[in-house]
Computed example of a mutant assay.
Amino acid sequence: MMPIDLDKALSADSTTREVSWTRRDVLLYHLSLGAGRDAATDPELGYTYERDLRVLPTFAMVAGQGPSAGDGASSGPELPGIDIDLRKILHAGQALQVHRPLPPEGTATVTSRVTDVRDKGKAAVIVLEQAATGDDGKPLWTTSMRIWARGEGGFGGPPGPDTETSVPDRAPDYVLDAPTTVEQALLYRVNGDLNPLHADPEFARTAGFDRPILHGLASYGILAKTLVDGVLDGDVTRLTGLSVRFAGSVFPGQTIRTGVWRQDGGLALSATCPERDDAPVLSHATAEVRS
């Protein structure tokens, strides 16, 4: 492998692709996050029925990758100037900002570019930004994905800022539990991320896990649904931004417990797994909300 070419990575032209999605893609996404689980008492029709369907903003993370994409879903981000072993990369963090409510079906143009590469010594942190616009040319969403590449540091780049985001030193305003189910990772995979780490026990053991783990972006989506349902009165349009650092894994069937602190400009968040002595799941987390 060639070392990271910082100049090439940061000066490369943006890449552009067209994505589209249908109501079925949205319904699947919501179901894979646990919507409608208690259908006998609350089918959550706003998430699970195509009439008057509302769309969680984090659907942007899988738009264009679900069943309607067939086998042509994206296999991963393009990283010009960064020739690394993909087995060494971890999804370290994710931020999303939605500029208007997402439609239940539609098309978008997604432009991607590497905006930063940080040299952390033993690893590199690659920041990939994606911006989506609708058919009308107006912005739909912007995402920032932070990729941790083990063993790829030492290329001579800047280390970047050490951002410290902590929750307030007081009890949370809300503590919200979101149980997951044993088959949840298998269902979430159908949104487009078919990494065997989330399905194949033998593959998971070779990666150092006792069994398959839940996708980080599944935890991210569950967090979004938890906030909408538990804090934002079920109004998906009030959640306009969500930024997290992936701090630990969740095994399907375990619980994601979220502490929520109200603060100026939004919410501070922390997610843990109570079945593992409140081991961290999502940290350095904040949400932007509309009043």
Rank of each mutant, 00 (worst) to 15 (best):
D7G: 03
A9I: 06
A9P: 08
D13V: 02
D13C: 01
E18L: 02
E18V: 07
V19L: 12
S20F: 12
W21H: 05
W21I: 08
H30D: 04
L31C: 02
L31G: 09
G34S: 04
G36E: 06
T41R: 15
D42M: 14
P43C: 10
Y47L: 15
Y47M: 12
R51Q: 15
R51V: 13
R54Q: 08
L56N: 09
L56H: 06
P57M: 13
T58L: 00
A60H: 02
G64S: 01
Q65F: 01
G66S: 14
G66R: 11
G70A: 05
G72D: 07
A73R: 13
G76M: 03
E78I: 12
P80E: 03
D83E: 09
D85G: 03
L86V: 07
L86I: 05
R87T: 15
K88W: 07
I89V: 10
I89P: 06
H91D: 10
A95W: 11
L96V: 00
L96T: 00
P104A: 04
G106L: 09
A108D: 04
V110R: 00
S112C: 11
S112N: 13
S112I: 14
V114M: 00
V114G: 07
T115W: 01
R118M: 08
R118D: 02
D119M: 09
D119K: 04
G121A: 02
A124I: 04
V127P: 04
L128K: 13
A131G: 01
A132R: 01
T133A: 09
G134T: 05
D135M: 04
D136M: 02
P139E: 09
L140C: 01
A149L: 13
R150F: 00
G154A: 14
G154R: 12
F155C: 09
G156D: 03
G157R: 13
G157I: 11
D162I: 08
T163K: 15
E164P: 06
E164N: 10
T165W: 13
S166Y: 08
V167L: 09
P168E: 01
A171P: 11
V175E: 02
T181A: 08
A185E: 05
A185D: 00
Y188S: 03
V190K: 08
P196T: 05
A204T: 13
R205P: 05
T206Y: 04
A207V: 07
G208L: 13
G208V: 14
F209L: 10
P212I: 13
P212M: 07
G216F: 11
L217H: 00
S219C: 15
G221A: 04
G221V: 12
G221L: 10
K225N: 04
T226Q: 02
V228R: 01
D235K: 08
D235L: 12
D235E: 11
V236E: 14
L239Q: 03
T240W: 10
G241N: 11
S243W: 07
S243I: 13
F246Y: 08
V250E: 06
F251K: 11
F251S: 03
P252H: 06
T255W: 05
T258M: 01
T258E: 05
G259T: 00
D264F: 04
G265C: 01
L269Y: 06
A271E: 14
T272F: 08
E275T: 15
E275G: 15
A279R: 15
P280L: 10
L282S: 10
L282Q: 03
H284N: 07
A285N: 10
A285K: 03
T286I: 13
T286Y: 07
A287C: 10
V289I: 15
R290A: 15
